[in-house]
Design a protein around this nucleic acid. Structure first.
Length: 564
RNA sequence: GCCCCCAUAGCUCAAUGGACAGAGCACAGGUUUCCUAAACCUGCGAUGUAGGUUCGAUUCCUACUGGGGGUACCA
């Protein structure tokens, strides 16, 4: 149950009744819980329009809604609401009944959303730089699915473009057998080429002409390209497997090779393109132009991204297309979206670029061209091995088999890296440092995982039959109150996190939940509480906390081991 | 040069225009005859600068300073 929308509705009705004004009231949680569970500022908002004192208006609204809601008025005109004990306890029981589906909703019923995420470049190692797109994208995918959208994930692999010309040029020069090349070899070739190209800019023309051949369908060139793609995909699969990421489709840029002419002519027919310096470009009022066709006749990723939109519309008819792609491509997507707009593709449709900040070095951007990257594989391995050490040193690790310890270390190590990423607001840049990536305490995945295992351990030892929240003791001064006043917010948080494309909100929520549970745990006995009724209540709260942690971590794509 | 993003405690991060800016790390101290001490409790500390809008600004607007990114045939 989402209390928030109910409260909104009641206020809306009351305002309409009293003042004949249609308003969408802002309802939020007061920062101080003494002020109640929810509050609204409508009285202050209305004060201007009604030319009256906010406090008087607040009192009137309070009287109008007091039948259905417990309210207070506070200066300078807040109306505060308090949830009843029945409602709070009822929610705990609902969590325990609904279990894994608690928090899901039908908000997105009948709507389709495409999430474009991960999109690593073929022939390059999977670097930490691609962590953000992959992890945030997957979390958004999970969130939208959970709140009722039909969700489609598409991994727009970077498997086309002049970068392949670069590679083809190098492979041809070195006379190496493609089949024997590893991704490391390929990346080295890429780096070498760009070093040479800095001294001899004409080399880039050579690369471009190789890509042109690829795009024209030259058989030998295509064979080499295919071999390169296969080597890369193998490495990517390993990483995805470790990350527990599974993306519905991976059409990749090469898929659109044959769909380019149709898009180009559609742009021409609308009169949106013009010739310039041998190339064909699309101009904008407030942005630099984008290249539709290069002067040698080959396409660019601008063209391919247009073709991709067209395909996705024809195939899935989505209402939202979310691009989880780095902020360095902001201009590109503005150009693509603006063009799609002019082509009338955006009717009843929304294109969103979730421009995440870059993972960078203190000194600047990571660059594959200059060989300045860090392999994600190294980071994950390091994190897992640190977690393994922790499991080994832990008191609770006793009695676990070596295999169990390995599994826990993997869940904790990988979870730590993922959570590190997710807990930052997508927009913020992340300065890479080996130490900060492996946070195992405080606001971290291991802390949440520990709390979850701890709660399960209590439930495991319970002596009562069924946990149930039926106690009617006043809650205000009780150890349970902070948890009861937090648990019910989970469904709201999911809506907010999805609507604002910010999984970090879910991280903050879960962390606060875990903190409240750990305080509760340290404060009062659960199994040994006085009296059966209190035991049942505390066990019910423990079960509900575990359930919400489990559901939340699942949405973030983080494993929750039952023991650690 | 022009465009976009960012600036919060010593460090790393939170906060749909609301009430006293909230955590973690680090630092100082404390807690285990009791359900997992990977925990808990106490303390220390912050909105880059100058204006503006508002009953109210970390949040919106303007300028400045500092950092990052982009800016035609890479993606």
């Amino acid at each position: 149950m989402v209390f928030k929308s109910e409260i909104k509705e009641v206020i809306k009705e009351a305002v309409k009744e009293l003042y004949q004004i249609d308003i969408d009231p802002v309802v939020e949680h007061p920062a101080q819980e003494e002020h109640g569970d929810y509050s609204t500022n409508v009285a202050m908002v209305l004060a201007d329009r009604l030319e009256r004192k906010p406090l008087d208006i607040a009192e009137e609204i309070k009287d109008a809604v007091s039948k259905s809601l417990r309210t207070d008025v506070a200066s300078p005109g807040f109306i505060n609401f308090r949830l009843s004990e029945e409602a709070l306890l009822g929610e705990v029981n609902r969590i325990n009944e609904l279990k894994n589906s608690y928090g899901s909703s039908d908000t997105g019923k009948g709507k389709t959303v495409v999430v474009d995420y991960s999109a690593p470049n073929i022939a390059k190692r999977f670097g930490v730089g691609h962590l953000r797109s992959t992890i945030i994208g997957q979390a958004l995918y999970n969130l939208y699915s959970f709140i009722g959208y039909k969700t489609i994930g598409d991994n727009h692999l970077g498997d086309w473009g002049t970068q392949f010309g670069v590679l083809l040029a190098e492979i041809k020069d070195s006379k190496a057998k493609v089949e024997d090349l590893t991704v490391d070899d390929l990346e080295k070739m890429y780096v070498d080429f760009h070093q040479k190209a800095e001294k001899d800019p004409q080399l880039m023309d050579k690369a471009r002409s190789w890509f042109k051949k690829l795009e024209e369908g030259d058989k030998e060139v295509r064979r080499i390209w295919k071999a390169v793609v296969d080597v890369s995909l193998k490495e990517f699969d390993w990483v995805y497997d470790l990350l527990g990421v599974d993306i519905d489709y991976a059409y990749g840029e090469s898929f659109y090779g044959g769909k380019m002419p149709a898009v180009i002519s559609e742009v021409r027919e609308r009169g949106l393109s013009k010739k310039s310096a041998g190339a064909e470009i699309v101009e904008f009022e407030d942005m630099p132009p984008a290249i539709l066709v290069k002067s040698d006749g080959a396409t660019t990723y601008f063209t391919r991204d247009l073709a991709t939109i067209k395909f996705r519309i024809d195939e899935w008819d989505p209402q939202i297309i979310i691009y989880e792609v780095g902020a360095d491509q902001t201009l590109h997507f503005r150009q693509v979206f603006e063009t799609a707009n002019k082509l009338s593709w955006s009717k009843d449709r929304e294109f969103v670029h979730v421009a995440h900040g870059l993972i960078r070095f203190k000194e600047g951007k990571m660059s594959t061209r200059r060989g300045q990257t860090i392999k994600l594989e190294e980071v994950l391995n390091e994190s897992v091995s640190r977690a393994r050490k922790l499991v080994e040193d832990s008191k609770t690790g006793k009695g676990l088999s070596s295999k169990q310890k390995d599994e826990i270390a993997k869940a904790v190590g990988v979870g730590a890296v993922k959570y590190f990423d997710l807990s930052h607001h997508p927009k913020s840049d992340i300065v890479f440092s080996w130490e900060s990536m492996f946070l195992l305490e405080g606001n971290s995945a291991p802390y949440l995982q520990y709390t979850y295992a701890r709660a399960l351990s209590v439930l495991d030892k319970k002596e009562t039959d069924k946990p149930q929240a039926t106690s009617r003791k006043p809650l205000a001064s009780e150890a349970e109150a902070p948890l009861l006043r937090w648990l019910y917010r989970f469904p709201e948080i999911l809506e907010e996190a999805a609507a604002s494309y910010s999984p970090n909100l879910l991280c903050s929520y879960l962390f606060e939940l875990a903190q409240r549970f750990n305080s509760f745990y340290a404060d009062v006995p659960i199994i040994k509480a006085e009296g059966v009724e209190l035991q049942r209540l505390r066990l019910a709260i423990t079960a509900a906390t575990a359930q919400v942690l489990k559901n939340g971590l699942a949405l973030l794509g983080i494993e929750a081991p039952e023991r650690l």
